[in-house]
Simulated scan of single mutants.
Amino acid sequence: MFNVLAFPLVLGVGVDYGIYIVIAMRQEGQQESNLATVVKPVLLSGLCTTCGFGSLAFAANPALRSLGSVCAIGVAWCLFATLCFVLPAYAWRGAK
């Protein structure tokens, strides 16, 4: 039953990462400096969230264990997709 909660958690976190990147690309000024101020916090946030949910994988309760595993994998994939697909696609598009 807890795995039903994993989808909204992962979706919310994953969408936020993409939104932060797009907002940084749309700001006026140097895009490189705007991205430098956003990419590091997004990366650290994703890694901390993955580690936090991943720690639930060691819980004694099977429901919490599966929730932690599913959320950790989902957040890691959202972070990967944001940094490897959203960022280059938006930069390649020449957004302004």
Rank of each mutant, 00 (worst) to 15 (best):
G29D: 03
V10I: 14
L11I: 00
L79I: 10
C78P: 01
A57N: 06
S33T: 01
S33P: 01
V70M: 02
K96M: 03
R26Y: 13
V75D: 01
G52D: 06
C78R: 03
E28A: 10
P62C: 03
C48Y: 14
E32K: 15
W77T: 08
R93A: 13
A63D: 03
D16C: 06
A57E: 15
L67C: 06
A81K: 01
G68P: 13
T82S: 06
G94W: 06
S69R: 09
T82I: 09
G68F: 09
Y90G: 00
M25G: 13
V70A: 05
C71V: 11
A36Y: 11
A36W: 15
T50K: 11
L56F: 14
Y20N: 12
F80P: 02
G14F: 04
A36V: 06
F2D: 11
Y90K: 00
C51R: 10
V10F: 14
R26T: 10
C48E: 12
L11G: 04
Y17W: 01
T82H: 00
A91V: 14
S45C: 04
R65V: 07
Y20W: 12
P62G: 05
T49R: 07
I21V: 12
G94L: 14
G74V: 04
F85Q: 03
I21H: 02
W92N: 08
D16E: 12
A89W: 14
P88A: 10
T50S: 10
V13M: 07
R93T: 04
T37E: 13
L43P: 01
A76S: 14
V39T: 11
F2Q: 12
Q27M: 02
C51H: 09
Y20S: 14
V75Y: 03
F7E: 14
A72F: 10
P41R: 06
F2N: 07
G29F: 11
R26G: 08
I73Y: 02
L64P: 04
Q30D: 11
L9C: 14
